[in-house]
Design a protein around this nucleic acid. Structure first.
Length: 849
RNA sequence: GCCGGAGUGGUGAAAUUGGCAGACGCGCCGGACUCAAAAUCCGGUGGGGCUUAAACCCCGUGGGGGUUCGAUUCCCCCCUCCGGCACCA
């Protein structure tokens, strides 16, 4: 159950203890945030003006009430990316909004009699404060909430556009019903037979519902995955599996005594001659028709009833034991004319293909098990080239050459498929076909807190769309929230009463609302013109800024939201509203943060709230630790000790800056003429180390390796500290440069601390606007290089040679090394491998056997 | 069953193109400071052998094999874990 109570920091005494140590993070944080707000650094004023654009988007959250540190990872990553891009000279759009419709608000209303709108608004305010506390600089001038009439008006408009194009339709069929949420669900919202939201086992019901025809885009959704080269492979694979394209054929078997033939789908038309019986699903129309006419044998009819009942309870229950009964019908093989029996069985599903199969027991394990149990004939029709052949103990699902399939004997499987499909085509008994696993998107919900579907039902004209000029169809406030499971909209007579747009007679309003995934399937377009009153979005601005350059969110949306958004964008493209085919250029799916080995959840009581941590250590500590915890795409376990480590690092950084300032009059380092860099000695070495790290950190950030970027910054601070500990000159320009570089590199990760330091260092403009550091290739050069020396691939020694030494010189130096002499003693040297700048490997000849 | 991904110290992890395995943290051990503790600072920290010590040697990235001068990295087989799909015809 959602919980609107805020999590206030409990310990203020502990905070007082640790706030000291010369690192006044509270003051620093307050000042920095005030400054960014005042200077409006992260607001996009005119979308049409920017040249170098970067659209960085976090998946907008459902306002459930409280964020935990796991959510924080998402926003910290996005904020870090946005800040880096800004420093790299891009105009950055980083907006935020609220996926604000949904069931928890309505459940809270039923439980506490609080209107969902109020509950949602309160949570939004609370979560906004939390996001601000992290220092995430979203452009709040573009904030949107999907529950605002000015937003859902356009969600309804989208519905009407799809309706007009035949892409939204109402149909009756078997649907998923969650008895706890009291609503239907899309296939995508059913996980292992359970409701994605509440984990209740889903039931099957026959209901008339609204669908979006996503299957019309099945091919495009699959093909365009190839364009998404910057998406995680995992997500593309998941979508590929979900769409589930398979090539095969439909084949029609005439039925004795029936008008219509029995149509099946198969991926293996080459095995047609091995089809010895047919099987249909219990829900197949043929079965329904036979029952209605009283022609299904009593045993089979009883079986069908039993099966249907069990599937209503749980359609996804594991039915391991295959069971079936003859229907009494006989089909005619379309090529041989042989008579084959038609069975009804539990292992064939109505939801895939045609709900009927031709059974080829020799080459399909399921058919084989069934045929074995009921002693049905088995004919081998494919023999693999490797000699594996059907031996009567198990099905052989291999490619090979056709046998027992006159006149196709000897053909390889692939050719056999073509030949048999061609033969069927000639007789009008079948044709090649592509089948998809993807079903149409069921979008209607029997709930209140969602965008009303803009349709009215007229007793004379039937289903009629609400004219666009009458949008939005407003959700009424005056409804009753009762735990009856009925939609609260049914309790408002005024809402229900409508006028037919066609005949202007009295009509009844549709009371279903839309799946909240419809709301979220287009919100990224709205951010470019969040207050536009005449259109859903501004096509020019959208074409200029999209696809989203970097999208960041949880992998749990790999199928649902990401597939739906891709679909809606393709529809808009076909409507001529936008000029691109895919909404998200780059996708990053961050890993979950666990605590005590589990996903954080209120029911498990293992939620780590950010508030007390931020109070105690500061936002930057939480940010740095979150980034340092591990590779951001992998799950990670939260460790309070690790937070201390991040805090210590920031204290050391701050002390380094303060020590530096204390030593000399404050002037902005990096400004003025280029200093004369030391050509040798400790300052030179410091500079080399620092620039190596600048290079490494830059690469890390580009590759989303924020964990190693943090480690690189730690090393940078360590380098200065070691330099200082060695009593070297802290007034050297190399130190000033190191501190300047460290501060700018730190700015996206620990922005408040970096901003505070930058100010202390005498800069006028914010570090958030400072240029992203580049390393100086000259600084990386060295007079001597240290090479690893191996003997037979094992590290034995190190040598130092002047940079740019010839291979021959390196070879000589290596061979002269005492350790090499020792290990190569008494052996003939067969080869010396010199890898410039890296190593030397002295290879000795193997002793003669 | 099919399809992905992963397996490295006590622990989170690092190693960009095949080139010093364990960077950077956490923890732990020892020391300094302190009446004491906390905090901080310094040193050590993969396993084993040998040694008074230093030096030195061997082993080591889930297991087995291979390619290569050289493999955490590439190839083959196997094991384990995680994720997705699943009587999908």
């Amino acid at each position: 159950m959602p919980d609107s109570r805020g999590t206030e920091p409990q310990t203020s005494t502990g905070a007082e203890e640790t706030a000291g140590r010369g690192y006044p993070f509270r003051e620093i944080t307050r000042r920095a945030q005030a400054r960014w707000r005042e200077e409006r650094l992260f607001e996009l004023r005119d979308p049409m003006k920017a040249d170098r654009r970067f659209y960085c988007l976090n998946m907008f959250p459902y306002p459930s009430g409280d964020l935990h540190v796991g959510h924080g990872r998402n926003y910290i990553l996005g904020d870090a990316v946005a800040r880096v891009k800004k420093m790299q000279g891009y105009t950055v759009l980083a907006p935020m909004g609220w996926d604000a419709f949904g069931l928890p608000a309505e459940n809270a209303a039923i439980a506490n009699q609080v209107p969902p709108a109020d509950w949602t608004r309160r949570n939004i305010e609370r979560m906004k404060k939390q996001l601000d506390a992290w220092g995430a600089m979203f452009d709040w001038t573009r904030e949107i909430a999907s529950c605002d009439p000015e937003y859902y008006r356009w969600t309804q408009w989208i519905f009407l556009q799809l309706y007009k194009r035949g892409l939204a339709y109402r149909a009756k069929g078997a649907v998923n019903w969650c008895p706890s949420c009291r609503t239907v669900l899309a296939n995508e919202q059913v996980i292992e037979g359970r409701c994605e939201r509440c984990d209740t086992p889903v039931e099957t019901r026959e209901l008339e519902q609204w669908y979006f025809k996503i299957t019309a885009y099945a091919d495009a959704l699959l093909d365009d995955l190839r364009l998404l080269e910057h998406w995680p492979e995992k997500v593309r694979v998941m979508q590929t599996n979900w769409i589930g394209r398979s090539e095969g054929a439909t084949i029609r078997f005439p039925l004795d005594g029936e008008g219509a033939p029995l149509e099946v789908f198969t991926t293996r038309p080459d095995t047609l001659l091995g089809a010895t019986f047919m099987v249909v699903a219990a829900e197949h129309p043929l079965i329904t028709s036979l029952i209605e006419r009283g022609r299904l044998p009593r045993e089979a009819a009883a079986f069908v009833e039993r099966l249907k009942r069990s599937r209503v309870e749980n359609r996804f229950g594991v039915e391991t034991e295959k069971e079936g009964h003859p229907t009494g019908l006989t089909a005619t093989h379309p090529l041989t004319g042989a008579k084959v029996p038609v069975w009804v069985a539990n292992y064939v599903l109505m939801g895939y293909g045609t709900g009927a199969i031709m059974a080829v027991p020799a080459h399909d394990q399921r058919d084989f098990e069934f045929a074995s149990k009921y002693r049905l004939p088995i004919v081998e029709v494919v023999r693999s080239d490797s000699g594996t052949r059907f031996d009567g103990t198990a099905a052989v699902e291999a490619d090979g050459r056709l046998v027992n399939s006159s006149p196709f004997d000897g053909l390889p499987s692939e050719e056999g498929k073509r030949a048999i499909v061609a033969a069927l085509g000639k007789k009008g008994a079948g044709e090649g076909r592509v089948n998809f696993r993807l079903r149409d998107w069921l979008i209607s919900r029997q709930r209140y807190w969602g965008a009303p579907i803009p349709m009215v039902i007229c007793p004379t004209c039937g289903m009629q769309p609400v004219p666009e000029s009458e949008l939005p169809v407003l959700l009424p406030d005056q409804v009753e929230f009762k735990p009856t499971g009925e939609s609260p909209l049914l309790t408002n007579e005024e809402f229900l009463r409508a006028t037919c747009p066609n005949c202007h007679g009295p009509a009844r309003r549709e009371t279903d609302t839309m799946d909240t995934f419809v709301d979220s399937s287009w919100y990224f377009l709205r951010f470019l013109s969040p207050r536009l009153e005449t259109k859903a979005f501004d096509s020019d601005a959208v074409n200029r800024w999209l696809p989203v350059n970097q999208y960041i969110g949880g992998v749990e949306h790999a199928i649902l939201h990401l597939l739906y958004s891709r679909f809606i964008v393709k529809v808009f493209r076909d409507m001529g509203l936008i000029a691109f085919a895919e909404p998200f250029e780059r996708l990053f799916t961050q890993g979950m943060i666990t605590k005590s080995g589990h996903k954080m959840s209120k029911s498990k009581g293992n939620v780590v709230p950010p508030d007390a941590l931020i109070e105690r250590y500061g936002a930057d500590t939480v940010r740095v630790y979150t980034l340092f915890i591990g590779p951001p795409e992998k799950d990670a376990e939260w460790n309070d000790r690790g937070v201390e480590g991040a805090y210590r690092f920031l204290i050391r950084y701050w002390k380094m800056v303060e020590d530096f300032i204390a030593l000399q009059p404050v002037k902005a380092p990096g400004s003025g003429p280029t200093p004369a860099w030391a050509v040798s000695g400790p300052s030179r070495d410091l500079r080399r180390r620092v620039h190596h790290l600048v290079q490494q950190i830059g690469d890390d950030v580009d590759r989303f390796h924020f964990n190693t970027a943090v480690s690189g910054l730690m090393q940078l601070v360590n380098a200065v500290q070691e330099y200082q500990a060695a009593q070297e000159d802290m007034r050297a320009p190399e130190v000033a440069e190191a501190i300047d570089l460290a501060t700018r590199l730190l700015a996206p990760l620990a922005p408040h601390t970096a901003e505070g330091a930058w100010e202390r260092l005498g800069h006028e403009r914010a570090v958030a606007e400072a240029p992203w550091p580049k390393f100086d290739p000259k600084a990386l050069e060295a007079d001597v290089v240290r090479l690893v020396v191996q003997v037979d691939g094992k590290v034995r020694s190190n040598i130092e040679v002047p940079s740019g030494s010839s291979q021959e010189a390196v070879r000589k130096a290596a061979l002269a090394d005492p350790k090499v002499e020792r290990f190569a003693q008494g052996k003939r040297i067969a080869q010396v491998v010199v890898v410039p700048g890296r190593l030397v490997n002295v290879v000795t000849a193997k002793p003669a056997p």
